[in-house]
Design a protein around this nucleic acid. Structure first.
Lengths: 168, 168
DNA sequence: GGCAACTAGTTTCACTTGAAACTATATAGA
DNA sequence: TCTATATAGTTTCAAGTGAAACTAGTTGCC
């Protein structure tokens, strides 16, 4: 098993010529596919926790998670953070409000906007859910050294920035 | 911006105690979320190539890609490789067959199974599409050194194996 | 003030999805 | 051989989806 090589230090090797540009495609070696299928599997596994144990969907979970560390968010802001379209956010909010996990208060400056807050009930649920999510993540990454973990996040950050550049 | 640190060498640091187990959740630091949103963005960007330029869906693209380097696949095998459920595979195949990008031949040993093949037309499309997909991927990863790229795939492999272990 | 353009959030509609039921075929066992 | 069970692939159905239309409220400008 190839080890976490130190890799020719910090940069200057440009295009990763890891493979020549053939007219065949090995999806197993194609980063977008690999990433997508890994992320999918992780999402599905994790959604067993919040889906089965807590009865919430991915969208709802994302809304709650954002509210857990920033109160006073609006639907729009949540949409921006989570990159979910506004219809999806709206529906998640309706469902969470129906289950009294969150509450909405209308802004007095702008009648169109509603601030979202966790209710006590919502906080209690998150108090159980979040440690379980962290524990699951910890199990997932136990086989990584902390260096590998850090490098992974780092590399993902680079890809995100490059993506923004390509999109921009 | 933290650089690609060499990280305490090869291993033995067990649980990445990168963060304590709090009752708040910063989605931006939560690996499943980060991975998922990165993969999503990449998928969407890439699907602009095969969607807009070639008029095929992700599912169709996956079927074609697998056929590009292994002829004689059945619907079931494609489902296993791509982790798509059989209904989705079936629909992708119907659509591709309708556009004469693939052809199906019934197995003589087992009347239930159909082998899938690319048609000349399908091969021609892939001959254009695959280099564009590779080129796009190359642009995405240009900011990574080849070491970082290798480490990324490596780490993803570890996560995949750990996931398989957790799933039992 | 009044009109046009804009924005937050909701609803509608046509399409996609996955789970389950179904069809047709194959295999194993009594 | 007959019956039960399994499998490949398709279809159905109910639920979920995003794009676009819509509602209600706001801002800019004359």
């Amino acid at each position: 098993m190839p080890s976490h090589s130190p890799s020719d230090p910090d940069a200057s090797l440009q295009a990763p010529d890891h493979r020549d540009e053939s007219h065949e495609l090995d999806l197993g070696q194609f980063l977008p596919y690999r990433l997508n299928s890994l992320a999918d599997r992780i999402s599905q596994a994790l959604s067993r926790i919040y889906g089965e144990r807590f009865g919430i969907t991915i969208a709802e979970w994302r809304v709650l998670a954002w509210l857990s560390h920033r109160e006073e968010l609006t639907a729009k802001q949540i949409g921006e953070h989570t990159r979910m379209d506004k219809a999806k956010v709206s529906r998640a909010i309706q469902s969470l409000e129906g289950r009294t996990l969150i509450r909405r208060t209308q802004s007095s400056q702008d009648q169109r906007v509603h601030y979202l807050h966790l209710t006590r009930e919502g906080e209690e649920m998150l108090g159980e859910l979040i440690p379980q999510a962290h524990a699951w993540e910890a199990e997932l990454v136990t086989t990584l050294s902390s260096g590998e973990y850090r490098d992974l996040l780092n590399t993902m950050g680079k890809l995100e920035r490059q993506l923004a550049r390509l999109e921009g």
